[in-house]
């Protein structure tokens, strides 16, 4: 059972990472426009912009 000593904290840390990532994405406004995000990905005209460090 000694294996629990590091397995349980590891599992919790992974879970907390997920939670933190979700809270970050929420704060960054990634859920403000769900329909738009689905469509923006189809738009490949921004490829050129990206290479120049565009938005």
């Amino acid at each position: 059972m000694n294996v629990l000593v590091y397995l349980v904290p590891m599992a919790l840390a992974l879970g907390l990472t997920g939670l933190a990532a979700f809270l970050w994405s929420l704060r960054a406004g990634q859920y403000e426009d769900m329909d738009g995000a689905a469509l923006r990905i189809l738009d490949n005209d921004d490829m050129g912009d990206n290479t120049q460090g565009g938005r």
Partner: peptide
């Protein structure tokens, strides 16, 4: 002159 334009498609 336009700095930023962002369309929210959902609303």
């Amino acid at each position: 002159g336009v700095v930023e334009a962002r369309l929210n498609f959902t609303n």
